[in-house]
């Protein structure tokens, strides 16, 4: 039976729930009310996807362009499926094969896309901050699909959605993120949504891959712990998220060897036994099975890694819907 509440009343007391943003660049400035709105809208989209015909016509006449300067499987495909499930038209562009190869600047590219009729541009770029530059130079809404080592807001939102579906309210829950925190846009964007949700966040990895100042920058009273000790990090955790360990980190001397990393930081069943029974196992993908995560854990009973991908479509539908139909000054 559905929960009944006055649809005119704000979900978070004292805060308006209307979507007013032109762009979604990171999660750091999202209010509790905005997070709630995205989560509630994503629930409705999940129901749409579960129907025999998981498609509606709400964004008929809207054009979504994906502009990827970096390779991607799930983010790009997930945005395309999400936009099509809402009835929008989708154009996919990659840097290779586009005028970027002829030297066109990012600003010129987004202005061109706006002139073509893009309402929303989903953008991935290897340089941190690139979507901010794009957003300032176009009337089209910019959605950050991952920029450098900075932010990946839609991944954090789909992670939050997945966590809340399994754990419910995250207040006081211990969420441990393990791996290359320093270079992880996923970890950074997750940190903001988790802290806003009242979770205790533990970031764990080798000292060379941990940001020295991150815990201090999360603000007064924020419950963020940074540690190099895997056993401490995972002990009593409600949720354990492993991050992809990129092989080039070894070439740059940030880890002694992959074998050493596996020995100290792999999320495996022996270490997971220290977490709460039934602790959720997550990974943003793509996985290096046998490196940051053991196969028996990645495909174990408590793994929600595939569900993260499925939820990604619903959450991206919610974001596209809110951004396409929202009014911004």
């Amino acid at each position: 039976m559905l929960e009944l509440r006055n649809p005119d009343a704000p979900a978070v007391p004292g805060e308006a729930t209307a979507w007013k943003r032109k762009d979604l660049l990171d999660t750091d400035t999202l209010s509790e009310a905005e997070l709630h709105l995205i989560m509630e809208t994503a629930e409705a989209m999940r129901e749409v996807r579960a129907r025999p015909v998981g498609k509606v016509a709400t964004l008929r006449g809207f054009t979504v362009i994906t502009l990827f300067y970096e390779q991607s499987t799930r983010t790009r495909a997930s945005f395309e499926v999400a936009a099509k499930a809402l009835g929008a038209d989708v154009v996919n562009l990659t840097a290779s094969g586009s005028s970027v190869e002829k030297g066109e600047t990012l600003i010129d590219t987004v202005r061109t896309l706006e002139a073509i009729g893009a309402d929303l541009v989903v953008m991935r770029h290897p340089k941190s901050g690139a979507p901010y530059l794009a957003a300032r130079n176009t009337a089209a809404g910019i959605i950050n699909g991952g920029d450098g080592t900075h932010a990946h807001p839609t991944q954090a939102l789909l992670d939050l959605f997945t966590m809340r579906r399994h754990v419910g309210d995250l207040a006081g829950k211990k969420v441990t993120i393990v791996g290359d925190i320093l270079h992880s846009r996923v970890a950074r964007s997750n940190l903001w949504t988790l802290l806003a949700s009242g979770a205790d966040v533990t970031l764990c990895g080798p000292a060379t891959l941990l940001p020295k100042t991150l815990a201090a920058s999360t603000g007064e009273g924020a419950r963020c712990t940074v540690t190099t000790r895997m056993e401490d990090a995972i002990e009593g955790a409600d949720i354990v998220m492993a991050l992809r360990m990129q092989k080039e980190r070894q070439d740059r001397g940030l880890i002694p060897s992959l074998r050493q990393y596996i020995a100290s930081y792999q999320v495996n069943s022996r270490r997971l036994a220290l977490a709460k029974p039934g602790a959720l196992v997550m990974h943003p993908g793509p996985m290096n099975e046998g490196i940051e995560i053991a196969p028996e854990v990645a495909h174990g009973l408590d793994s929600v890694i595939e569900e993260q991908v499925a939820n990604g479509v619903a959450v991206r539908m919610a974001i596209l819907y809110l951004m396409a139909t929202g009014r911004h000054a």
Binding site: L2, P7, L37, E40, A44, E47, T325
Partner: peptide
């Protein structure tokens, strides 16, 4: 009916949508 309204682009804010059941 949020996703089926004919005034989605004419309203001051996106109509709230919730799961049907």
């Amino acid at each position: 009916i949020g996703l089926y309204r004919d005034d989605v682009t004419r309203r001051p804010a996106p109509p709230p949508v919730r799961p049907s059941e």
